[in-house]
Write a protein that binds this DNA or RNA. Structure first.
Lengths: 335, 335
DNA sequence: CTGAAAGCGCTTACAG
DNA sequence: CTGAAAGCGCTTACAG
């Protein structure tokens, strides 16, 4: 591995000059710039990032905090892969790499420690549905940070999420228009932003349409399939079962669908279902799940943009406002 | 951020001693070790990773080469998320982080350059189905490298893949036992390891069972749903259509299933289907897809182990042999 | 068991 | 526009 010193000697300039052609090429004369660039290509010089980071305190790396243990935390993000893809390409455009933080020893400082040790330029948090103090602590720190589906804000922290309330309202409006007046819901965990917001959006929309909501029409699941199935079973057992159900997540909606079928009922003849997320399965499972689609790639690109904006702003500039992505209703067979 | 110098002064020892308590605690006396550790905790000292990497040439980071642009390359790995999870936790146990390599300027040296610049300790390659020279070049380099579902080997390079031939044989054996003698296949792209191996395993197993394989019983898809549907349509149009089809990927199998239904035929009454992968959808799509399951988490843990073994071995030690993960047949409704 | 010193490969005021 | 020099925060022979 050639070093900057060797390259400098190779073309008879100082290391400072070589450094400049890579960092501030505009300040060096065209002639020497070309000379250095040619020599660099010839001997295969590559700047050492550790040395650069040490000198500049900027690593060009963004930390990704994503708790992999979704079995214990009870929620796996439905679009992780797509978010990763979008995030990665948006960050690439600015020369930023993504570092998956290995969970070291526990403690509320856990993630912040990684940030400091690696001089990370920023971090993105993906909600895992738990109230992890190590995650919450990042929001108060001085490092640019954007949370996904977690309503965090802080001096240099913002978040991006779908318009969960609006999406729920879209579902209600649609069902109402189709004539439904007995509309129940299977909500997500109240401790998650999406869970809470979809439920309150649902409530408000019903009220706006003057549709009453009996307490027993509000059931809860954990975003996983089995919980949707169980909740739907309960709903079907009511004295006055609903004619339509807004399910706050597609996986639960598929479970709900199974419960309906198992009860010998038909969809949408006996009960209509509208889900949320538009996961891949939604289009494939018969008769096709009508659902509220989220802007999956939008999560990644919006997060990257917010992050980059903060990184390029002075440390005392206010954080960008939360980004709320629009949702859209996708009509299929269940409603 | 406290530095090692401040910490040293704080407890009246040299920086060398402080360094030792963090790197080779066994060589420092118990008394000074405790003194240093206490002081470190008190002032919140964290070693700077860039400085360590600069000094040691080891970054404790593993690069992940994963081409996100699967639209252009024609294959997205069915288990990426699970592989990531398993990889991340296995690496965490050894204090290794995972760096998603941002694709910089093109060229066959692309990835190798990132490896050098960041002093990566190793890299894992996830096949994207393309014959990218930048990927292939890594195998010949001197850096520990393990490829997933890509039959790469090299001085310090090995790979992990499922027993694709064996899995195909399991499918054939099962169908044969159920009485099928007209067995067709929808193969994956021949340029991918899994595509090629599942097809040759299928061929060999049929031969071993003395079941003839008419050329028109071999169709090809690209692992995506639509191609499976198209291929199945062709098969159903044959003069002597197969009674069973081995589909080399579950997504294609779902497409095949749709084609059968659209043709007004029933599964498995008219045609049986066995897929490969056991994706989540397999269990959910009626009547349940019978398929060959892969050891998803095994990919990640095996890759991590192989990598760590190489990292801990001298550079001239031979690379570990390829790791072939066993598959298993999951019976559901389609066969 | 511990310290002084050189070195890892860069960047960046400061002069010129 | 360019160079000499200090500094970024560690590690690791080498002495003692």
């Amino acid at each position: 591995m050639a070093t900057i010193r060797e390259l400098a000697r190779h073309c008879g300039v100082s290391v400072a000059t070589v450094s400049r052609v890579f960092n501030t090429p505009e300040v060096v004369s065209q002639a020497t710039r070309q000379k250095v660039e040619a020599a660099a290509a010839e001997i295969g010089y590559l700047p050492n990032e550790s040395a650069r980071t040490l000198a500049t305190k900027k690593s060009n790396m963004i930390g990704l905090v994503w708790d992999t243990d979704h079995r214990s935390t009870g929620w796996r993000h439905p679009f992780l892969q797509e978010i990763l893809v979008a995030l990665k390409s948006a960050l690439s455009a600015h020369g930023l790499h993504l570092l998956l933080l290995a969970s070291g020893p526990d403690g509320p400082e856990r993630h912040l420690r990684s940030v400091r040790r690696h001089n990370l330029d920023g971090v993105v948090l993906i909600d895992n549905g738990s109230r992890d103090p190590a995650v919450l602590g990042l929001a108060d720190a001085d490092i640019p940070c954007v949370a996904l589906d977690l309503p965090l804000t802080g001096p240099r922290c913002t978040h991006v999420t779908s318009d969960n309330r609006g999406g729920a309202a879209q579902a209600v409006a649609y069902l109402h228009k189709r004539g439904h007046r007995r509309i129940a819901t299977i909500a997500g965990p109240a401790r998650t932003g999406p869970g809470a917001d979809r439920l309150s959006g649902f409530r408000d929309a019903l009220a706006a349409h003057n549709v009453p909501l009996p307490p027993e029409y509000v059931t809860h699941g954990d975003f996983y399939l089995a919980s949707g199935r169980a909740a739907m079973r309960e709903l079907l057992l009511l004295d006055t079962p609903p004619t339509a159900v807004f399910v706050a997540g597609d996986e639960m909606a598929v479970g709900a669908l199974q419960a309906v079928t198992e009860a010998g009922l038909r969809i949408p003849a006996h009960v209509s279902i509208v889900g949320f997320d538009d996961i891949e399965l939604a289009a494939l499972i018969p008769p096709g799940l009508t659902t509220i689609a989220q802007d999956r790639a939008g999560f990644g690109t919006a997060a990257a943009e917010a992050l980059i904006a903060m990184i390029q702003s002075p440390a005392d500039a206010p954080a960008p406002p939360p980004i709320i992505l629009p949702t859209s209703l996708v009509r299929r067979g269940t409603a």
